[in-house]
Design a protein around this nucleic acid. Structure first.
Lengths: 249, 249
DNA sequence: TCCTTACTGCGTATCATGTACGCTAAATAG
DNA sequence: CTATTTAGCGTACATGATACGCAGTAAGGA
């Protein structure tokens, strides 16, 4: 009822604004606006999302949007929750490690559909319905570990950080690659030209070994790196659980 | 000589543009421009860096900058290399694990001085002189492991990903906290209001345990989280080294 | 010495963008 | 029927990136 105590963007994400009793019927809904903005960001780029473009796509004037959204930043926050959608339900009876791997792969898949997601600043703890569902899913699978609640939150936050960091870096690099593949192709020869072996001995050794001379497939490398790093992190979590709960069953 | 084969921004970072022989003496240098831009970003924000602001700070016109920099994006790339400065030299004779911890702390310290760094997109592999020096420093400390060159690169890239991801998340959260501390203070009560225990059972349990009701010091928590995650990652690297090289001396 | 040439700084103009403000018309409450 | 609330929208403005071309300057060549 009194959602006055809730932050405005949170109330918006949960669609808690009570329907107005008077005035003309809205010809626009928040959902349509968010969907249109997401469609533009998917097709082009986060930078391509301007209030004018969104409004145009909906056949409305730019300023009409401001009846439903306080600012562009608020739109971004709502977009970021909407883009994640709901996680696949966790398979029954999986152990925590399989569960978190499943979860991380799910995040990767979800964000692959909306590459701009990783560009948005994280403004706070997960407060929208979809974000919260993901959070709940990861916390739920840790229930079996017997970790204290606070430690579970720490582990999940760390996992979120790792996953988002990896994704962001991969997408940034991929974007750079698309912008000019030459820079990658020629990275080896660039280094040979510019990196004095006396100043950068370790880099020079690597260059001599030819590491930068052939370029693999991006998608494959990313998938491999992602899993590799994820398993590293989960190794650490396992050790942490042992330390806190004792080497359990 | 023929730096025509180098990408323009790389040439700029290494200051390889040959000095012009004719025409008026430049009253502006690339270094001054980059320094001014960094000063603005440090004092305010990356968003506060506009060509006009930078020029004003230097007592020049906006368009004069374009004689030294091809675009704002190029300025950002050059800024990002300049901001890192050189790493502290690695202490003599440290083992790889101590060395990488030292290295990661150094990155954290460097970026703390320029919080906007984590907001910049990574457009490619590290190609500027300072970035390369950091890269070299981390690679160098892995020489003792006997890993193949390519694996060293993988480990260092993973480390960079982790460190940057953690830093970015921490700074984003800190910015959100400054913008409105209330949202954090009231996060527990927000969740109680909005998160139906039947839909979000694990979150509800955590909320009931009071995890979100008290807020710790940001700086402390970050430092702890950073070291915790870093040691997890290094645990994984140790296992990886054992796997590839055999359980070495 | 003077002209040519390459170059710098800068004024102007253009276009995109976020958003404040206020008007008009619609829908409902009384 | 009237007052109130609210939606859409036109206008205006501030800010920002950057294309373009001019004017003046310094070096090279005559």
């Amino acid at each position: 009822m009194e959602d006055n105590e809730l932050p405005a963007d949170v109330a918006a994400m949960w669609r808690l604004r009570e329907a107005p009793r008077r005035g003309p019927k809205p010809s626009l809904t928040l959902d349509e606006i968010v969907r249109a903005a997401i469609a533009i960001a998917d097709a082009e780029d986060l930078a391509a999302v301007s209030m004018a473009r969104v409004a145009e796509r909906l056949g409305n004037s730019t300023m009409a949007l401001y009846r439903h959204v306080k600012s562009k930043d608020e739109l971004f926050v709502i977009m970021s929750d909407a883009a994640l959608e709901r996680p696949e339900p966790m398979p029954e009876g999986v152990d925590w490690r399989t569960g978190l791997t499943f979860w991380a792969d799910g995040v990767l898949t979800a964000i692959r559909r909306h590459k701009w997601y990783a560009k948005l600043p994280i403004s706070g703890p997960p407060a929208g319905p979809n974000n919260l569902a993901w959070f709940d899913s990861a916390l739920g699978v840790l229930a079996q570990t017997g970790l204290p609640e606070e430690a579970k939150v720490g582990v999940v936050m760390g996992l979120i950080t790792y996953v988002q960091g990896e994704i962001r870096m991969a997408f940034d690099l991929a974007a750079g690659y698309i912008d000019n593949p030459d820079a990658f192709q020629r990275f080896g020869s660039t280094l040979r030209r510019v990196a004095d072996p006396r100043v950068y001995p370790a880099v020079a050794r690597t260059v001599e070994a030819g590491v930068f001379d052939e370029v693999g497939s991006f998608e494959e490398d990313n998938e491999t790196d992602f899993d590799f790093g994820l398993q590293l992190y989960l190794d650490g979590v396992a050790a942490f659980i042992d330390r806190v709960c004792g080497p359990a069953e």
